[in-house]
Nucleic acid binder design. Structure first.
Lengths: 219, 219
DNA sequence: GACAATACCAAGCAAGCGCTTGGTTTGTAA
DNA sequence: TTACAAACCAAGCGCTTGCTTGGTATTGTC
């Protein structure tokens, strides 16, 4: 019992550490803003406000107040309000793509890979980047078509990770349904967790929730 | 082969007829607006525009133009813009609750009932009421809290239909995962079909899609 | 310390929004 | 035909929004 708890605690710490390493290397490569810097803090607050009130109902005055500056000052950092929205989306895709790739590398079998992807996506959606992930889903229409195109390119890289794993499972006979359809079902199902999942509810951890998803698919 | 096609065609016609009967009786009871009337036409166009551009980006001028009147005239029919949004939501829940109930009555086993609910919800989401159903999901935050409360009351009736069936399946041992979680996963998965499902894609009919969902759950 | 770059302030602009108001037109019933 | 209710028009109001502009303050570098 004590030994099991010690192992779980160590695994969590290892996972957190490597997530932090991934974040730091993305920051170093200027792919993601440092959450501690002015731009990063603004994006974090923007994601929160956009999630909470919607992009359209969040004014530049709201955004500025959230980081403690005047609204005109935002335009020193971003050309337009829309550029803020796009940055929220782009940066969360980059980070989560990297985290998904790490989850894949840590797994051996196709089934373990799928579990790793589900677990990682659930963590993205319900953890630190949850607000940005929800913004990606709910505020898509507020992006101009050119910006949508750019974000989609990044999104396609992320989606390919999923489809590759699901196609392996299909080939191995472990999955009966069409991988294309399954992925889209999972996208919807996992994205929706943002509206209802709370760890305190019945003690359902992210691992427990992942197990439920896998059970639901009889995997 | 010919006999099978004849049966399918007849089943479709029967289903369409009974859907129309359900709609007509809701209209008669003033629970839903007649799509052919001024109010109903406005709500149909509103659902379309809200889905397409978002509620916040759809102006009253847009709404008015869509039905061929001047913007000030809208306020003869609805007190505020928000009341239009709420009516779109309320009316689609009422209609789809009735359709779900009909699907339940047409089924015998718990598995058939679940299949009926999934099929009916997929039809709601991807058929005539698809725009309104998407508005229900994506525009929730634009509703004031009192209105959200009212819509939720109707929504809870609808959700209970699902939970009852899933709980039966759980008791019968056909479902391993938690019904509460499964329903929410299904909500997300099925709602998301609005973003990608097209009947022309690989010939996947609503029945075929329903089968994929059931297969994904190994049911 | 001097200078440049960066970050921020304060005031206000032009455009557009939901809605009101006074009026006209259309539909319905007697 | 008349009277009334319902539906619509046209003009415009008060307010809000994203953003600009001219300035000040702070930070970074040599």
């Amino acid at each position: 019992m004590f030994q099991v708890e010690l192992k779980a605690s160590y695994a969590n710490r290892v996972a957190v550490v490597s997530q932090n390493q991934i974040l730091q290397s993305l920051i170093a490569e200027n792919l993601v803003s440092d959450p501690k810097g002015a731009r990063g803090r603004l994006l974090t607050e923007a994601a929160r406000l956009f999630r909470e009130k919607g992009y359209e109902r969040t004014t530049v005055r709201d955004l500025a107040a959230a980081v403690g500056i005047q609204s005109g000052s935002l335009f020193h950092h971003f050309r337009t309000k829309e550029e803020i929205l796009k940055a929220v989306m782009v940066e969360t895709i980059r980070l989560n793509t990297a985290l998904m790739q790490a989850a894949l590398e840590a797994a051996d079998t196709s089934r373990q890979k799928l579990r790793g992807l589900i677990r990682a996506e659930l963590e993205s959606i319900n953890g630190q980047t949850g607000e940005a992930m929800a913004v990606l889903v709910f505020e898509w229409r507020s992006l101009s078509a050119p910006s949508q195109g750019e974000v989609l390119e990044l999104r396609d890289i992320y989606e390919k990770l999923w489809l590759d794993v699901l196609e392996s499972l299909k080939r191995e006979g472990a999955l009966e349904a069409d991988p294309f359809v399954v992925r889209r079902m999972l996208t919807g199902a996992l994205s929706w967790t943002v509206t209802w999942y709370k760890p305190e509810r019945g003690g359902l951890t992210l691992d427990g929730l992942t197990d439920q998803v896998m059970a639901m698919m009889a995997l």
